[in-house]
């Protein structure tokens, strides 16, 4: 098995374990777009744990940049495309009530039909976009 597959599997297991811990301790779904969305106006009443979780997430990035700089890859697209991507990701996850973590990890594990449909949809449009963007650029 190639190293990148093992790292992917180990990292995935860590993501699953962290999500399970959030459910055990706070009873919440570890969906990043949902956790973040609860902090934006009109904000949810339970802002404290959301903020603490996201501070931890961002802190991992701060530490990662020092310990293993190559883990955070450079963009393969021009900055304008990155901004467009961010806008679409924000709008789409807000409208579709979730992203790769909420629908992909937590929803699929729970056998949610909504999450399964969402994952198949974003995988399909993601693959199509990656293909088209690759041909164009």
């Amino acid at each position: 098995m190639p190293t990148s597959w093992l790292l992917a599997l180990g990292g995935g297991a860590l993501i699953g374990a962290a999500s399970a811990l959030l459910f055990l301790t706070h009873g919440r779904i570890a969906g990043i777009s949902g956790v973040l969305g609860g902090l934006l106006p009109p904000a949810a009443p339970d802002r404290a744990w959301r903020l603490a979780f996201l501070v931890g997430l961002v802190a991992a990035g701060v530490a990662g940049a020092v310990v293993a700089p190559s883990a955070i890859g450079a963009s393969v697209r021009p900055l304008l495309a990155v901004v467009a991507a961010g806008l679409l990701v924000g709008f789409g996850t807000g409208l579709g009530s979730g992203c790769t973590s909420g629908h992909g990890v937590c929803g699929l594990s729970r056998g949610s039909p909504r999450s399964l449909a969402a994952v198949m949809t974003f995988m399909a449009t993601g693959a199509a976009t990656a293909f088209v963007a690759g041909v164009v650029s």
């Binding site: 990043i32 777009s33 973040l36 996201l54 997430l57 961002v58 991992a60 990035g61 990662g64 955070i72 963009s75 393969v76 697209r77 495309a81 990155v82 467009a84 991507a85 961010g86 806008l87 679409l88 990701v89 924000g90 709008f91 789409g92 996850t93 807000g94 409208l95 579709g96 009530s97 992203c99 790769t100 973590s101 629908h103 449909a117 969402a118 994952v119 949809t121 974003f122 995988m123 399909a124 449009t125 993601g126 693959a127 199509a128 976009t129 990656a130 963007a133």
Partner: peptide, 22 residues
């Protein structure tokens, strides 16, 4: 519709919300 829009953004930038924040 939301999932479809999210997928386009993900395929364009290569980042979803969690990795973006990291």
């Amino acid at each position: 519709g939301g999932a479809a829009i999210f997928g386009v953004g993900w395929g364009l930038g290569g980042l979803c919300p969690g990795p973006g924040l990291v």
